[in-house]
Design a protein around this nucleic acid. Structure first.
Lengths: 138, 138
DNA sequence: ATTCCTGATTATAATTTTTATTAGGTTAAA
DNA sequence: TTTAACCTAATAAAAATTATAATCAGGAAT
């Protein structure tokens, strides 16, 4: 968290109360929240904080490379971790689980002459918990 | 194409004119079109075909496992190929390029006890063409 | 301290994307 | 041919995101 703030300052990002608050909520969450979820949580502490600010802030943070934006399902989701890792989406409980793996192809830096900057892999399936509960409707 | 139709019939999917038309457009496209693009193209031949039908059909085809739905950017995009392959999204020209690779982890069928059914990997970066043109604003 | 400037925030409107509804039409089976 | 099931079109509604304009906050210069 402190490192992120330091890097943001170095990049010339103005660190307002609102931006710090968004960053904090994201850092303390492990469930890849949607914009709506982040906003709802913040409203408890900052009742006037607008949804637009959350959108703006998330964009600023992403452009600064301090958070990740995930395209899973209809809504965008956000991940405070920028370490190379991937995600498992369970069709049963709809959870998004972090996977501590990194893509061997991405590490090469390029493929077919295209320069790779990042990768986002989503594994779809049924998680261990749902398998146990027999929610595997295959 | 013929195989797809055969499999759809076997699965009990009613093959209407509209559904065939959507499937055909998708099969003849290599640029991973959005719902809007598919609809626009179809309107030329079928002026009354509604957007809702395109949405419905794409959902039917996806649930039947005959097409792939891609979450890249804001709009959903569709891919007629269900063979294991992945995608490269160029930040320069915004093209989506097919990558003829398959994920070694997905082939194992499971990870951390979670059952894998499919994977969707998106590599972000700058494509070979844009690199040449110096569009690599890194 | 006051004014000015820049950029952030708020509130709201507008747009875009997706899903739901409903009435009418088609299709396929009995 | 009649019935039941399902599909389509048109429309409305909902959900998600972006744009706009007014306001506000913090520094820099006066």
């Amino acid at each position: 968290m402190d490192n992120k703030i330091k890097r943001l300052k170095e990049k010339g990002v103005v660190l307002t109360i609102q931006r710090m608050a968004v960053l904090e909520v994201l850092n303390n969450s492990s469930n890849h929240p949607t914009v709506e979820k982040i906003h709802k949580k913040l409203l408890r502490k900052y009742p006037t904080l607008s949804l637009a600010t959350v959108y703006n802030t998330l964009q600023v943070l992403r452009q600064a490379g301090e958070i990740q934006e995930l395209n899973i399902g209809r809504e965008k989701r956000f991940d405070p971790s920028i370490d190379p890792h991937h995600h498992f989406y369970c069709r049963g409980c709809e959870r998004i689980i972090d996977l501590e793996i990194s893509c061997p192809i991405a590490q090469k830096g390029s493929i077919d002459g295209h320069k790779i900057e990042s990768v986002q892999a989503i594994f779809f399936g049924t998680c261990a918990d749902c398998l146990k509960k027999g929610k595997d409707n295959a």
